[in-house]
Design a protein around this nucleic acid. Structure first.
Length: 108
DNA sequence: CTTATGACGAGGT
DNA sequence: CACCTCGCCATAA
């Protein structure tokens, strides 16, 4: 087991991701800040990488700061993420970018 | 203890 | 736009 999923940092990160509404996206840095962990964008990636297989968390709604699906060396999984987003109405422009001003999550 | 790694990001060229 | 460099920070080795 790489990390300890019981730690509050991970609990807060996952809770934040869980709050991203359908059809909207958030960046790693944004999730980190919302979770009260500024400068921990990389930790968000770490948290998502360690999700239990059958998790219902909307992990696919997290993109990098440029609005693209992050390269994790697994083209198949990356295509799946894109498909899941398109399924909920998120449009990808040429270059595989999402317009964050249009689809970005604005927390209350 | 020291290095390397990485689903990241800001800022410069 | 594309790259590149550097800072960041939890983890792993």
């Amino acid at each position: 087991m790489p990390i300890d999923p019981r730690r509050p940092e991970y609990q807060r990160i996952w809770a934040t991701v869980d709050a991203i509404p359908r059809g909207r996206v958030a960046t790693y840095g944004q999730v980190a800040r919302e979770a009260g962990l500024p400068r921990h964008a990389r930790m968000v990636g770490l948290a998502l990488r360690n999700l239990p297989p059958g998790s219902d968390l909307p992990w696919h709604r997290v993109l990098n700061a440029r609005g693209e699906v992050s390269d994790r060396g697994a083209p198949e999984k990356e295509r799946r993420q894109r498909r899941l987003l398109e399924r909920e109405g998120v449009r990808f422009g040429p270059g595989g970018r999402v317009d964050l001003a249009r689809h970005g999550w604005q927390p209350d």
